[in-house]
Amino acid sequence: MTAPQIHPKLTEALARQRTAEHIVGTLKHLPDGWIVGFQAPGFRPLSAGSGAVGPNGEWNFDVGYWVWGYGDLSGDEVFDAFVNVWNTWGWIESAEPADSPTRSAFGRTQDGYRFDIYRGARGSVSMSWTSPYFPAPESRYDGLMPAIITKDGPQSYDDPHHRA
């Protein structure tokens, strides 16, 4: 097993910002009205956090988001739309076929952010993003994270640590 690559100039604040940029960049290639956010109507809230998870105490940042606002489309159509965009960029590493009861796809951006997208059995779509490792911070960054993101950028912010 190889040691994780540490990004010495990356911080939690920069990881949060870059994650949001990846999401906005993706949404710009999808239909208007699609929303990525901590809490979709009728679903439990997702969250964000960071901590020492690397073998030598390195940190990373991860966040979970729901996708909604796609009208009458099925969860499979939404899942496929995201996967198709990411696949054209060479980001997709694996994806489950359409006939699976649930579906997931995994990938990595060119700058080392890992992500997955998941379509649940009842059609809901969620995604999670994990930053590359960065040196342990002197203190935790307790800034706000975009709570709702559209192709126009973050629409609102919230403290992701207070999510259940």
Rank of each mutant, 00 (worst) to 15 (best):
G143E: 13
A121V: 15
F79M: 13
P41K: 10
F61D: 01
L46A: 05
W59K: 02
G153A: 11
N56V: 01
S94N: 09
P97E: 14
A98C: 07
A81L: 14
P55K: 04
R122K: 15
L73Q: 06
T150C: 06
Y157F: 15
M1V: 14
R18K: 12
P146C: 06
Q39P: 14
A13Y: 05
G107I: 00
S94D: 07
G51E: 03
G71H: 00
G37H: 08
W91I: 00
T109F: 00
D111C: 01
D99E: 12
P41S: 14
Y157E: 03
H22V: 01
D76K: 11
P132I: 03
A105E: 03
L27S: 08
W91F: 04
P55Q: 06
R44M: 09
I149M: 02
G64I: 02
V83I: 15
P41A: 11
P97M: 08
W91L: 00
Q155Y: 10
H161A: 12
I92V: 15
H7E: 14
E77C: 03
A3L: 14
E12M: 06
R44W: 10
Y113F: 15
H22T: 03
P146F: 01
A40Q: 15
P146Q: 06
G123F: 10
G25K: 03
T109Q: 01
V36D: 06
V36L: 08
P146G: 07
E12I: 07
R44Y: 09
E21F: 00
V125C: 13
T19C: 04
